[in-house]
Design a protein around this nucleic acid. Structure first.
Lengths: 339, 339
DNA sequence: TCAAAAAACCGAAACGTTTCGGATAACATT
DNA sequence: AATGTTATCCGAAACGTTTCGGTTTTTTGA
C-alpha cells in the first residue's frame, strides 16, 4: 500500500509538499506538482481516508439509521425509496454512507451518540423510529448534525423532511366526500408516529369542513400493519355496517381492509370504498387497484441528504422541508349506492 | 470529545493501561480495570474507530457495491432483499457497511480498488454488475477480499453466492411440459449476466430431456426490462402463434409478456401460459397471479456477508454457495387447450 | 532473607495524513 | 548593497489509538 511518504521519497520532496501538491495548494510549483501527480499515479496511490479523517476531524461520511431494512418491510418499499434517494444525492456530492445496522429495537447495545461518534460521521439521517424512541432524546441533546424523516424537530443542528400529511389525508377524505360518502371510517397507524397524528388531523379537518360529525367509534388503530388492520377492519365493519368508505393511513393497511371486506363478502368498491396512503407499487397492481395518496419517498431521501449537507455547511435557511402529495384515483373508490 | 488520554489522566494510569484495560487484556488488575471502565462511562467515552482502524489496519467495515439502488429497480426489490440480508448478518457480527454510491455506470471517477483502498474496507460485496464491467477485472487482480453475487469467480480472496439457476429454469420449463406444453418460448435477459446463460441452459436441458426440439426463433432477449420484454413478446407471439407457453428469466419481464398478451387479446392462462423467475412480491398480486421460480434474495445477501467474513478470517472451505429455488404455481399456467 | 517468578504497569513508536510556522532561494526595489 | 517581496519548500507536531519491549512491584518458594 503506497503512502504519501513513498511518493515523497520518489519525488525527492517532503511529505508536506506531496500533500499540498496533491491537494492543489498554491505554494507548490507547477513543475513539482506535475511530477508528484505523475509519480502518485505510477505507484497507484490512493489516499487513506482514515488518516485524513483523523487529522481533519471530518470523515465525509453520513451515518444512516433506518428501521425498515429488513425482510418484513419489503412490501411497502418506502425504506428502499428513501435509501435510493439518499444514495442519489450522496453520489453527487462526494460523501459516502455508512449503514448503521441497528439490530432489534429492544436489544441495542450502542446509543445513537456512540454510533455516530465512533465512526466519526459528519452527520446522520434517521428514518423510521418512533417518537418514543430513546434515540430521539439523544438527537436533540448531542449536537451532531442530523436530519430526521417524518419527525418534526429542529435545533441549530437538526432538521427534518416530511410530507404534508395533513393535506394529504384531507385530500383522501375529501375525495370520498365529493363522491357522496359521509360515513367514513379511518384506520390509522400507531400513535407513536408523527404521521399518524397528522393524518388524523387531516381526516378530522376534512370532515369538519364538510360539516360531517366525527365519530370516534369509526376510528381504529392498525399499527401500520396489514394483518392488524385486517383484524381491526373486520370488527369495525361488522360493528358498524353503516360505514360506506374507509380511509387508511397506509396502503399496506388498506390491503388488510381489502381482505377484511372480502371475508365479509363486501364488494369493493360497490359496497365499500377504500383509499390508502403512500401509493406503494402494489397499489396499482392489486384487484381492485387502490386509490391512494402518493408521496415521493425517493424525493424524501434526496431532500434529506441535501438538507443534511446544507446544515453541515452552515448554510442559512430553513431546516425543514415539506413535500407535496398527489391523489391517485383508481378502482377502489366509487360513490356510495343510494339506499 | 473525550479520549483515552483523558481517562488515563483521570485514573492516574498510562494510556497503555487504559487501552489494555478497555480491551480486556489480562495484564491489568481487576481493580484498575473496573476503575478505568467506570471513568470511561462517566466521561461517556467512545473509542475513535478511525484511529483504531488506522493502527490496526482493519476497519470492521464491508464495502457495498450495488447497482440497483435507484428508483427504477423499486419494482423487483431484489436489491432491497439482498441489502436487508447483508444488513442482518452484519448486525450480528459487529461490522458496519459503507455504501459506495457508484454513480452512473458510465461516468465513474474512481476504480473499484480505489474505492476499497481509500475507505480501507476489510472486504467488499458486489451485486448487479455485468460480466463485462471493468470492475470485475480489478476484483481478480486486487487481492481485496470480495464476494460477488451471481458472478462465478473464485480466487483465494474472492468467492460468490448465487442461486441454482439451471435447475430453477429447468423446474419452470418442466412444469410447463408436465402440463402438456411443447411449444414453449423463452424471454431471456441480456447476455452480460451469468444468470441469463444459466437459465438458458436450464431451458434447453428441460426441453432436451423431454425430447422436444429447441427452436431458436422462440427465444428472445428482454434485457431484464418490462417494456423491452413486452415489445419482444409482442413480436414473438405475433410471428409464432403456435407458442402456447412462455418462460421468462424474470418476473418483471413476465409482467411485460402479460401486457403483450393482453394487447393481442390472448387470454392468460387459457391461450398462453406464463412462468416467471424471482417470485417478486408483485407476482402474487397481479391478475392473473404469476407462476414463478422463487429465489430468496434475503438469504443471498445473508450468505454473501457470511461468506465474506469467513474469507476474511481465512477459514478453510468452499468460496461458493449456491442456493435452491422453489416453484410457486399460481394462476398464470394451465394445460394447453386441445386443438 | 534472598532469588526467582509472576503480575501489573508504562514509554515510546507506529499508523498516514494535514498544517502551522518557519526557512530558503530568487527576484525586485530602493 | 541592503532591504523587502514573493515563490517554494520543509520539519515537526498533531489526530487517537494499539502494541512492543521493558520496568517496577508483588508474590512465591526455598
Amino acid at each position: 500500500m503506497t503512502t504519501i511518504k513513498d511518493i515523497a521519497k520518489a519525488a525527492g520532496v517532503s511529505v508536506t509538499t506531496v500533500s499540498r501538491g496533491l491537494n492543489g495548494y498554491s505554494d507548490v510549483s507547477e513543475k513539482t506538482r506535475e511530477k508528484i501527480v505523475r509519480i502518485a499515479k505510477e505507484l497507484n496511490y490512493s489516499p487513506n481516508t482514515l488518516a485524513r479523517s483523523l487529522v481533519m476531524n471530518k470523515s465525509k461520511t453520513f451515518g444512516l439509521l433506518v428501521s425498515g431494512l429488513n425482510q418484513s418491510s419489503a412490501k411497502d418499499n418506502i425504506t428502499f425509496g428513501i435509501l435510493a434517494g439518499i444514495n442519489k444525492f450522496v453520489g453527487e456530492s462526494g460523501y459516502d454512507i455508512v449503514l448503521f445496522s441497528t439490530t432489534s429495537t429492544k436489544q441495542r447495545e450502542k446509543t445513537y451518540t456512540q454510533l455516530c461518534k465512533e465512526r466519526r460521521v459528519d452527520g446522520a439521517i434517521i428514518q423510521g423510529i418512533r417518537t418514543d424512541d430513546p434515540y430521539l432524546k439523544e438527537v436533540v441533546e448531542s449536537d451532531i448534525p442530523c436530519v430526521l424523516i417524518d419527525i418534526p424537530l429542529t435545533t441549530p443542528s437538526v432538521g427534518y423532511v416530511t410530507t404534508d400529511n395533513i393535506l394529504g389525508a384531507k385530500k383522501a377524505v375529501q375525495h370520498l366526500i365529493h363522491m357522496g360518502h359521509t360515513r367514513i371510517g379511518f384506520i390509522n397507524g400507531h400513535g407513536f408516529a408523527f404521521v399518524s397524528q397528522q393524518r388524523l388531523i387531516g381526516y378530522e379537518e376534512a370532515l369538519k369542513e364538510a360539516t360531517i360529525p366525527i365519530n370516534q367509534e369509526w376510528i381504529g388503530n392498525g399499527e401500520f400493519c396489514e394483518v392488524a388492520a385486517e383484524r381491526v377492519a373486520l370488527k369495525l365493519l361488522e360493528d358498524h355496517p353503516e360505514i360506506t368508505a374507509v380511509f387508511c393511513a397506509s396502503d399496506l393497511m388498506a390491503l388488510g381492509v381489502l381482505k377484511a371486506a372480502r371475508k365479509l363478502g363486501m364488494d369493493v368498491p360497490n359496497e365499500l370504498s377504500i383509499v390508502g396512503f403512500d401509493d406503494i407499487i402494489l397499489a396499482s397492481y392489486v384487484t381492485p387497484s387502490l386509490t391512494s395518496i402518493a408521496q415521493d419517498t425517493f424525493q424524501i431521501g434526496y431532500e434529506a441528504a441535501k438538507l443534511l449537507l446544507s446544515i453541515l455547511e452552515n448554510e442559512a435557511g430553513s431546516h425543514v422541508v415539506s413535500l407535496g402529495t398527489e391523489l391517485k384515483v383508481r378502482e377502489s373508490t366509487k360513490p356510495p349506492r343510494q339506499q
